[in-house]
Amino acid sequence: MTSFLDILLYIQIALCAPCLYRIIRGPTIPDRMVGIDIFGILVVGICGIITVQTGKAFILDIGIAWVILSFIGTLTLAKYLSGKKLNE
């Protein structure tokens, strides 16, 4: 049972590779930002699987904090894209 969870964890970590590919090779700037956004959501899944695997419940806290900070970061990037001024 634990080995199967290990396999799932490795798959989930390996899924970060497409995001990194999109961040590095994205033809335009918004493509890279899509990669960053999806990367932030994937980490929550990693935190959830590690929680079940190790049995330490506090790792979920890291996941929730990561969701919130990734949301603020993506909003900042979107704001940078949509206009040059803060008021626009």
Binding site: I62, I68, F71, I72, L86, N87
Partner: peptide
């Protein structure tokens, strides 16, 4: 009791205000 503490919590506290400023503009 858990990981985190003053620094990480402070960053999230600042994040809530930054979110308000980003969403509502400067005025």
């Amino acid at each position: 009791l858990t990981p985190g503490g003053g620094f990480a919590g402070g960053v999230i506290l600042a994040g809530s205000f930054i979110l308000l400023i980003l969403a509502f503009g400067s005025d």
